[in-house]
């Protein structure tokens, strides 16, 4: 980040839809974490995953790739 002309910037607008985990269906396999292009999904202390909403762009890959259907895309809040 120091070299070149690129400067750090705040990630842009908030996404329309954000992922929401259903903890009863989630088996904590980590596939959502592996397939997130924006590195938005983090592993919490309890082993469950959650999205950093500053980074999430709402693409829906985690919702599509979850084998157990534990992730649904919801409006924020």
């Amino acid at each position: 980040m120091d070299e070149g002309k690129a400067k750090p910037f705040e990630p842009g607008e908030k996404p329309l839809l954000v992922p929401l985990w259903d903890k009863e269906m989630c088996v904590r396999c980590g596939l959502c974490y592996l397939f997130c292009p924006d590195a938005a999904i983090k592993r919490g202390d309890d082993g469950y995953y959650e999205a950093t909403l500053d980074y999430c762009k709402g693409c829906g890959i985690c919702h599509q790739e979850c084998w157990f259907g534990a992730i649904s895309m919801m409006e924020e809040g």
């Binding site: 910037f9 396999c29 980590g30 974490y33 924006d38 938005a40 980074y55 762009k57």
Partner: peptide
Amino acid sequence: VPQLLPFKEHFLPEAHRACMG
């Protein structure tokens, strides 16, 4: 298995402006 990978991220959205997905 995904948890065998390093959890540290080197390619964060602060450094790129890719579209979603």
